[in-house]
């Protein structure tokens, strides 16, 4: 685990840079929504608390009357897939760099570009994995009593995390050589199964922590008395925390790959 932490620290600039890239991708939508949001959606926050029926009425009114605001929402929807694909490429590039034990920014971007298509191919093939694993968990939940809500949610989360781990195992093989990477990733996952289970508990806790931080951030921003700059600082910190958690997940998988390779 300490080795993984060291790798995470080694990738600290990558975490920051990923964040900057993500925000740059979303920037056009952000600018449009801020400009037209300020023009059409902002009303006395005491009369239209954010999320209230009154706020939604104003929000949808703006969608009807402002082409600029609608364009902002549309561009946000269009930029999300671009964001997703960029993150995939950067993840593949970073995995390749982590495997070398020496993360260099130039190498990272170069690997990201080189490995984009293989990683995308792996991702598309991988989609069947959660379909099967989460599907199986969903079947199991049907056998459980209705009131076991948390157990059911836990089982579905377990299926999903197992699928994600499978992807990361496969990605470690994929960045070396694409052939049979999904299959070999699965084999690697089940070789490390017990360790993976233990780590998944830690990761689930980190996910809960990040989710909680996001909720706190949301509550802070919705509060009429809170200030804008503090909101931006909190947003940056939460986003950075999320990046470190994600890189930690990737680093652990790289170390498992190094052990079994």
């Amino acid at each position: 685990m300490m080795k993984a932490f060291k790798t995470v620290w080694m990738c600290k600039w990558a975490a920051l840079l990923t964040l900057v890239i993500e925000w740059l991708i979303l920037l056009p939508a952000f600018v449009l929504l801020m400009k037209f949001g300020n023009q059409y959606v902002v009303a006395d926050i005491n009369a239209t608390p954010i999320g209230s029926p009154e706020f939604l009425a104003v929000f949808f009114g703006a969608m009807k009357s402002s082409d600029g605001f609608s364009l902002g929402l549309m561009s946000f929807a269009l930029l999300l897939p671009i964001l997703l694909l960029t993150k995939l490429a950067l993840t593949a590039g970073l995995t390749a760099q982590m495997q070398t034990g020496n993360v260099r920014l130039v190498g990272w971007f170069s690997d990201a570009g080189r490995l984009f298509w293989p990683a995308l191919g792996l991702f598309l093939r991988w989609l069947v994995v959660p379909l099967v694993l989460v599907g199986m968990m969903a079947l199991v939940t049907m056998l459980l009593p209705d009131e076991w809500t948390w157990v059911k949610a836990g089982l579905l989360l377990f299926g999903w995390l197992l699928s994600l781990s499978w992807f990361m195992h496969a990605l470690n093989i994929n960045v070396q050589r694409e052939r049979l990477s999904l299959w070999r990733g699965g084999k690697s996952l089940f070789k490390n199964f017990v360790t993976v289970l233990g780590f998944m508990l830690i990761f689930a806790l980190l996910l809960a922590l990040c989710g909680g931080m996001n909720l706190l951030l949301g509550e802070h921003n919705l509060d009429a008395s809170s200030g804008m700059w503090l909101g931006y600082v909190f947003s940056f910190l939460v986003a950075l925390l999320v990046r470190f958690v994600v890189i930690y997940w990737q680093a652990v998988h790289v170390h498992w790959w190094q052990k079994t390779a």
């Binding site: 951030l217 804008m228 909101g231 986003a239």
Partner: peptide
């Protein structure tokens, strides 16, 4: 300049 409250929350 209050749109940041929900625009920022939505993006993050």
């Amino acid at each position: 300049k209050q749109a940041w409250r929900w625009v920022q929350s939505m993006f993050i």
